[in-house]
Amino acid sequence: MFKFTHDTIERNVGLMIVLMMLAISIGGMVEIIPLFFIKGTVEPVKGVRPYTPLEQLGRDIYVKDGCYLCHSQMIRPFRDEELRYGHYSLAAESQYDHPFQWGSKRTGPDLARVGKKYSNEWQVQHLIAPRSMVPESVMPNFPWLLTTPLDYSDIKDKMRALRDVGVPYSATKAEYERNVKKFGPKVAEMLKISDAEKNIIWQVKHGFNGVPGDYDGNPNNITEMDALVAYLQVLGTMVNFNKYDNDQFVQYR
């Protein structure tokens, strides 16, 4: 008669792999799954919106060029971090990030609230040649950003894919109406998948989010620099923390 013993597992590689994976993932599951059932894991807060198509492409360049290898985007609730970078990051602030860029490696400073800290010109100059602005910097030069035209031919596909995982880009009239209610008409326009290319061109020309356009300093073309700077300039600026008590977000942890 069949008897299930240690021996059964050791002699059956397939079964052993499955059981091993189960054992290893228990720790992760115990930590992660409960969060889906706790209200307030993603704090209710005003202002957080999906990225505009231009910002989203900037984010893709941020990932592509490996900025995350040296920069985190997660201000932890510690005094030194609060003093240097500003209010600690909320889970809500990265709810539309797929994948999020929290990271844990800081060769350079945290960038979670770098938006609007510097001017577009500074960002451009610093990305082309960091040491021209910060002599002791070890950040690499990224000069090609300024000369590489932004490829936005596949932006609609990207937005559709993000919509599939829950980012509220709108594909229908009803979804657009919902976005108008949730984010206001200006942002809702930007989230229309059908207008993505038009919106990229518009944002490069006019700017968005209180940051002037023409991010790369050359109005005649749309470069990777335009997209990346547009992205950097929105980081951490969506929530206006001055509108809340400074302990508003304590209750959710």
Binding site: P77, R79, Q251, R253
Partner: peptide, 22 residues
């Protein structure tokens, strides 16, 4: 104590601890 001067006692969590630390 928060920025309104209200004194609060809550269960331990890192955000409250930051407040106390500040």
């Amino acid at each position: 104590v928060n920025n309104k001067g209200e004194k609060k006692t809550v269960h331990w969590n890192s955000r409250a601890e930051l407040m106390a630390n500040m």
